[in-house]
Write a protein that binds this DNA or RNA. Structure first.
Lengths: 228, 228
DNA sequence: CCTCATAATTAGCCAAGCCTAATTCAGGAT
DNA sequence: ATCCTGAATTAGGCTTGGCTAATTATGAGG
């Protein structure tokens, strides 16, 4: 019933493909060859070739000219990588003094090299955190993951007081800027103003007032409605 | 004068070859193809092929049918890997609760994945240790290394009191056994007896007395003469 | 000085993963 | 219903890093 890919170790490349496909199909919508190619910075033919191999390994289903979807076995492998990546990021920030904008590339390499044992030891040292430094949820070792609802700052009603729960981790510059304003996950803010037509938003946080453009307002996500 | 291999990143394989060759030629004596093949568990032809590439990269000198020797550039790269390996081992023991017999395979993979930044942060967290958990000296970031003289327990005079400074890191079983007897680097022991013709040695350490066969007596090395 | 065992190298393959160029398919516009 | 455009795949090639089988060099012993 389930080929369940004999537990032969996957290569770095394979792990990267699975993670990318997972990222591209949050709720099972198929991912296209070109999306994958773009995300991994590879040519489309390279992706076609690898996709064929991965589907033979039972890690994904491929409908030619349509797209790919992870199998259970593939999704499990992808979530394992996501867990590693996010725990590594959390560990680097907590115990090795990394700034939150610098952990991504380091985790990108380490996630392929650490053993399950090391990952779990890091999880223990961290006290089994639920999220990484950017607020992204860390999948459990059993592969379960809970994505708490959150709203971009740009969609929030003026006047609400909420907690920042998550910030897009790409773009180190953006992370550095937000950190310099003190706008990081866990911080409580009040939305004081929002100009129409994608105009800037004004937020207040521990006495300071900041004006953010549309791009920033979209990547900063806040606790779901009613919070606080 | 010095091709100094353009700082293009080396591959995992190349790093492993350099490290192996470094291990096999402590003071510049050339290493043979078959020694390298044996250490890396590869076939001799594979080594021949790689050796040719490495010598073209200026990392080593190869005299066909004679042997290979690292160039300065190659030795620098090898020492960089040794530093990484030993710092990682020290870090895992100190901060992640690894037993000293389990760190080797983990370090073997991580040494290829960590950034220079991460290595130095680990070094700082550890307080720039001089040796790893097995007592092997950690090269400095500038590539210098000091190998303190040490004597195998099997060569020590009866009656001497010395400090254990170093234990061969291969053979996890052996490490576990020695740890179970409390015979680890830093521990002070007195040689109470040694039987001739490779017979067992008897040592005393904090009140306990242990009898060790020849194999163990050879891999446990003690502080140079006169110590303590 | 020659022979021969052993070590080393060369010859010839293979798989993983990438590429570019050529081809084929799907689906909207005519 | 057909055409055309863009996405996807196939064809063909390259590099890395391994392998086995065949060949060649070294150096020790007769």
């Amino acid at each position: 019933m389930d080929a369940t890919a004999t537990t032969e170790p996957l290569t770095r490349s394979v792990e990267d493909y699975l993670k990318a496909i997972y990222r591209l199909s949050p709720e099972g919508r198929p991912a296209s060859t070109s999306e994958i190619a773009h995300l991994l910075q590879l040519s489309p033919p390279s992706v076609s070739g690898m996709v064929k191999r991965l589907s033979e390994l039972g890690l994904l289903e491929h409908v030619p000219y349509k797209g790919v979807q992870l199998t259970d076995s593939g999704r499990r492998a992808a979530l394992r990588m996501v867990r590693r990546h996010r725990l590594i990021e959390a560990y680097l920030v907590e115990f090795l003094g990394y700034p939150w904008d610098a952990v991504h590339p380091e985790a990108e390499r380490l996630e392929h090299a650490v053993s399950d044992t090391l990952v779990e030891r890091m999880a223990v040292a961290l006290g089994h955190p639920a999220v990484d430094p950017h607020g992204d949820p860390i999948p459990e070792a059993d592969g379960s993951i809970r994505e708490p609802a959150s709203t971009p700052l740009s969609d929030l009603e003026v006047g609400r007081t909420v907690e920042i729960v998550r910030v897009d981790e790409r773009e180190p510059e953006r992370l550095r800027y937000l950190a310099s304003l003190g706008l990081t996950p866990g911080v409580v803010i009040t939305l004081q103003d929002r100009q129409p037509f994608g105009g800037p938003v004004t937020v207040e946080s521990s006495g300071e007032r900041h004006v953010l453009g549309q791009e920033l307002a979209q990547v900063v996500r806040c606790g779901a409605e009613g919070a606080r």
